[in-house]
Design a binder for these strands. Structure first.
Length: 468
RNA sequence: UCCGGUGUGGCGCAAUGGUAGCGCACUCGACUGUUAAUCGAGUUGUUAGAGGUUCGAGUCCUCUCACCGGAGCCA
C-alpha cells in the first residue's frame, strides 16, 4: 500500500490509509487507547491517530511512541469522534522506524529561535520552520513562474569569479593553494613571507572569489536574449551582524534589454505584488499560522501592499520630505548624503505607510554602471523600501554609452582593463537596459514576519558561524 | 567593526553580596474521546570560561568567548 500525505488525508475520504511521519505529541487515555499526533511536513496540521491498546505488539512499542519518533501507521481514515479535527486514523498496525529517546531536544512547547539555531538539524520539525520552508519553497517557485510567464530566460551566472565587479564589499577568496606555505612570486619558500603570493600557480591561474552579484554577467546575456533572470547563491564577506544580513544568501537578478528606469520600477512593483498574492493564495494555512503566532498584522500588511500603488519619489523629493520632518535624525539630512536606515524607515513607515521606490540618486553615492541622467548630477538608480524591513530591491538603468561608462570607471578609480568585456557590450550593439536585485531571504522574512533573517534560510552563514 | 544587553537544571526564566528557586520537559501515580490535556509526587545545577575583590560572589571588578538588539555596509 502506498503512503498518503497528511495534507491529502485531511481532505480525503474515509477508507484504508497508510501514514508515515514524526510524532508531535501523544495523549494517553485510561479508556484503553492513545492519541498520536503525526506530522509529515506536507502541511502545518497534524493527523490524529487513535491506537487501541489491544492492538497486537502495542505493549512492545508503547515506550517508543514518543515525541520525535518516526512511525508508519496503517489504519482506517474515518470522521473523528472528538472535537478539534475532522478526520483521524484508527490504527490497525504500527511500525516504529526510529524512536526518539527522552533527550530529544524539541519539547512540546515554544522554543526560542536562538536555541533552535543551535539545533538546525532538528528545527525543521517545528511548526514554525515547517511553515517557513513551505513558504520559501512556494516563493522560489512563483519567482520562476513570474519570469517564465513573461518569457524571461533563466540564466546561471558563475559562482567563482575573478574580479570584484561592483566594488561591493568584501569577497570570499577561493584558492587551492597551501595556506601554510603558498608559492611566492620571487620563488622563495618556507619562511620567506615577504614575497607576494604567486596566484599564477593557483587553480584558476589567478586570484578568484565567490560572486557578490551575477549582474554583470547577466547583462551579457540580456544583450542577446533580451530578458533574463538569475536566481542563485551570493556571497558577501562583510562583518555584518544584523537581523537582515547573511554571508551566503540567494539573490534574484532580472536584467532586461530595452527597459528604461520606469519600466524597471514597473516590473519590480508587479513582481512583488505577484509574489505576495500568490503566497496568500497558495500558502493560506501557513500564513494564518504566521499571522497568529509570529506577527498578528502580517496578513493585513501583505493585503495592503497588494492593493495599493507603491509611492515613487526621487531622491531629491525624499530629501525635501526629510528636511521638513519634525522628527530629529541621528544622521544629517543633506542632498548628496546616503539615506540612512532611520530616514528610509521614516519615509516608508511614517510618511507614506507603504512601500516606496526612491529613484534618481546622486551620482557620487552610487555604482559606476548606473546610467547618468542629463546634467550628470544623478543616476537612474532605484531602491524599493518596505516598511519594517528596509531595502528589498536595488536596481538601476545601466549606462549603455561607451564613452560615458569609460569616464565613470576612471572617475571611480576602477581599471577599465578589467572591465574590457563589459565595455565591449557598449562597443558592439549596445542597447538601453535595466535590472535589479532582490534578496530572496529578505523577501521570505518580510512575507513570514520573521524578525531574524537567520531563521528563514535552512542553514544560515554569518560571521563566526558556518555550522551544519 | 562600533554601541548596548544577555549568558543560571534538557528548555524558558527567577534569586538586596549571605541555604540556587519556579514553570515546562522527564520518571512514577491518578483521571480523561484526548487537543500545548488535567491533577498529585519525584529526579535534574562545576550559575559560559579564566582571573580578582570579599569572612562570604549567580550577584561587584578585569579579560576572553558566545549569543541577542541597534548602527554601519548592503540584498
Amino acid at each position: 500500500m502506498k503512503r498518503t500525505k497528511i495534507k491529502d488525508l485531511l481532505n480525503g475520504e474515509e477508507g484504508e490509509a497508510l501514514v508515515k511521519g514524526w510524532v508531535k505529541t501523544r495523549r494517553d487515555s485510561k479508556g484503553g487507547f492513545s492519541f498520536l499526533e503525526i506530522n509529515d511536513g506536507s502541511c502545518l496540521a497534524n493527523i490524529q491517530v487513535v491506537i487501541e491498546h489491544t492492538l497486537s505488539d502495542y505493549s512492545s512499542i508503547e515506550n517508543q511512541l514518543m515525541t520525535g519518533s518516526c512511525v508508519s501507521v496503517r489504519g482506517k481514515l474515518v470522521a473523528s469522534e472528538g472535537k478539534g479535527q475532522s478526520m483521524e486514523v484508527q490504527a490497525t498496525g504500527i511500525e516504529v522506524y526510529g524512536p526518539a529517546p527522552a533527550d530529544y531536544p524539541l519539547q512540546k512547547k515554544r522554543h526560542s529561535f536562538e536555541f533552535l539555531r543551535e539545533i538546525a538539524h532538528l528545527r525543521p520539525r517545528t511548526n514554525t520552520f515547517g511553515a517557513i520552508m513551505r513558504v520559501r519553497n512556494r516563493l522560489a517557485f512563483s519567482i520562476h513562474r513570474f519570469f517564465q510567464d513573461k518569457g524571461f530566460v533563466y540564466l546561471n551566472t558563475p559562482i567563482v569569479t575573478t574580479s570584484d565587479c561592483e566594488g561591493a564589499g568584501e569577497m570570499f577568496q577561493v584558492t587551492t593553494l597551501d595556506m601554510s606555505n603558498p608559492p611566492r612570486v620571487d620563488g622563495a619558500v618556507d619562511g620567506a613571507v615577504n614575497g607576494k603570493i604567486d596566484f599564477s600557480q593557483d587553480f584558476f591561474g589567478e586570484k578568484t572569489f565567490l560572486t557578490v552579484s551575477g549582474q554583470l554577467e547577466g547583462e551579457i546575456y540580456a544583450m542577446a536574449l533580451a530578458e533574463i533572470y538569475t536566481f542563485g547563491p551570493t556571497f558577501r564577506a562583510e562583518n555584518s551582524n544584523t537581523s537582515r544580513h547573511l554571508a551566503e544568501f540567494w539573490m534574484v537578478e532580472p536584467e532586461m534589454a530595452f527597459y528604461d528606469l520606469d519600466d524597471n520600477m514597473d516590473l519590480a512593483e508587479e513582481f512583488i505584488k505577484f509574489l505576495l498574492s500568490d503566497i496568500m493564495e497558495h500558502c493560506a494555512e501557513d500564513m494564518e499560522f504566521f499571522n497568529k503566532r509570529i506577527d498578528t498584522t502580517i496578513l493585513e500588511t501583505l493585503r495592503n501592499i497588494i492593493d495599493n500603488q507603491f509611492e515613487r519619489l526621487t531622491y531629491t523629493e525624499a530629501i525635501h520630505q526629510l528636511q521638513k520632518a519634525t522628527e530629529t535624525f541621528t544622521y544629517p539630512v543633506e542632498w548628496g548624503f546616503a539615506l540612512q536606515a532611520e530616514h528610509e524607515r521614516y519615509l516608508s513607515e511614517k510618511v507614506f505607510k507603504k512601500p516606496i521606490i526612491v529613484f534618481n540618486y546622486p551620482e557620487q553615492i552610487k555604482s559606476f554602471y548606473m546610467k547618468l541622467n542629463e546634467g550628470g548630477e544623478t543616476v537612474r538608480a532605484m531602491d524599493v523600501l518596505l516598511p519594517n524591513l528596509g531595502e528589498i530591491i536595488g536596481g538601476s538603468q545601466r549606462e549603455e554609452n561607451y564613452d560615458v561608462l569609460l569616464q565613470r570607471l576612471r572617475d571611480k578609480d576602477l581599471d577599465p582593463e578589467e572591465y574590457w568585456w563589459y565595455l565591449d557590450l557598449r562597443k558592439f550593439g549596445s542597447a538601453p537596459h535595466s535590472g535589479f536585485g532582490l534578496g530572496f531571504e529578505r523577501l521570505v522574512q518580510f512575507v513570514t514576519g520573521m524578525e531574524n533573517i537567520r531563521d528563514v534560510i535552512p542553514f544560515p552563514r554569518t560571521p563566526k558561524h558556518a555550522k551544519f
